[in-house]
Nucleic acid binder design. Structure first.
Lengths: 233, 233
DNA sequence: ACAAAAGTGTTGGCTGTACACCCATGC
DNA sequence: GCATGGGTGTACAGCCAACACTTTTGT
């Protein structure tokens, strides 16, 4: 069989940036690196791709191993490839980001891997260029969420509009007028009102909603406008 | 020194999807593959990354070798990594897309590499998954151009508004009302009117404009709205 | 004079924003 | 009854699509 070349090999890794929401805070999932160098430093979840493994599959596998979650929202972000980004060997990293509901996430597996959730504002220093990866992911999510209903991926099946608003406010780090938000979000037709109310955060209680998955899928590619026109940040 | 593993190596390639505009048509630059297998089939411009080469640098290098152009608009698109995408060896491909003014492009180098411009509608079948790469690039450009002034990268220093409109119409494959287009684009403040007119395509002639590069850079990240709200396609 | 492309004006509807106000309920 | 968060109503401004019209000039 033909071969292309005999250059020194370059390793291919996949790193996953996992964002979660617990109804209160947007958080980032990190683990302590298991191998030298920089052992026990905080790191994204990563691993090398198998020789017969698709990139997307590798990302799913790594996420499954770490969170026990299948079929989560997972999207390729960017490929990082500076020659010196990993001091051990030349490694390029294909990054993926994921959005999950923290409460769905299984605690046991968390413990096995010593993974921890960090509030975005309290993210520790990460190894290599992982800090840059997180920054890039955050920018992409802001970009996408301004146009598409991706943030629903972070929510449980039932959620309230104030919860949703809080999520948007955290992602964009700015206050949103609740009255306009409610109207905009209900006008989108994406939500199905439930009978039940959540009384945990107010006396009056806020109605639970479910996502209309059909409409969500249909509208996913259309351009919506969930936040203001200002540049995020 | 520590080493990570001894898995069979995976090759890392860079492929460039180069779009051009000659004032009439949006075109795609392709070459005939120089090596076996599939020798002489149409292909994107690609190559393997050097062992000490950054991904972005590799893309610039490949583009320079093929077009003689430096400092062109070049943006990482997506990384393709299906195990069987290249039948010879396991190769992942980091793709970049580029937008250039065809008239700036030096013909000689073109001839050396046997590169040819194809109208988008007349693109031949490409090797491997290159067809999918082109499709992905086109989608991304439509997405981006709806919000950011990236299509100016395809134009020469001086251009007319009808030329610009024609470009948008081709990218989105739909007619645009010229009267609204003119107002929208002039209102953006991105254009500087020149004295001179282009008389080649009408009796009255159309004023030339130059891009206000400062404003272009400043507004690049802000969300604009150059096309309608419909989903492109 | 006329055709053909470039460019200006005008309108009405939709959408986003700001902000005043009412509602439900636990204390 | 009052504080607190949830939710509705209203009013204004800006933007955009649609379409009528004028301007320029080669033939």
């Amino acid at each position: 069989m033909v071969k292309y070349s005999t250059e020194k090999p370059i390793l291919v890794a996949v790193d996953c940036i996992v964002f979660g929401y617990d109804g209160e805070d947007v958080k980032l999932l990190l683990i302590k690196r298991a191998i030298k160098p920089l052992k026990d430093q905080w790191s994204l979840m990563g691993g090398f791709i198998g020789h017969n493994e698709d990139l997307d599959d590798a990302a799913q596998r790594i996420l499954l191993q770490l969170t026990g979650l299948k079929n989560v929202y997972l999207e390729q972000l960017h490929t990082f490839g500076k020659p010196d980004r990993d001091p051990v060997e030349r490694t390029i990293s294909v990054t993926y980001f994921s959005l999950i509901d923290i409460n769905k996430y299984s605690k046991q597996i968390n413990d096995i891997y010593h993974a921890e959730w960090f509030k975005l504002s309290e993210t520790p220093t990460l190894i290599f260029d992982h800090g840059m990866m997180v920054k890039t992911a955050m920018e992409k999510i802001r970009y996408q969420a301004a146009l598409h209903p991706i943030l629903f991926e972070l929510l449980p099946k039932k959620f309230t509009i104030p919860q949703l608003q809080n999520l948007y406010e955290q992602v964009y780090d700015m206050p949103i007028d609740n009255r306009n938000f409610i109207r905009k979000i209900t006008a989108s037709g994406l939500l199905i009102k439930q009978e039940e109310k959540d009384k945990s955060s107010s006396k009056r209680g806020a109605f639970y909603f479910k996502l209309d998955k059909h409409k969500h899928k249909a509208q996913f590619k259309s351009f919506l406008n969930f936040v203001g026109k200002r540049t995020p940040g």
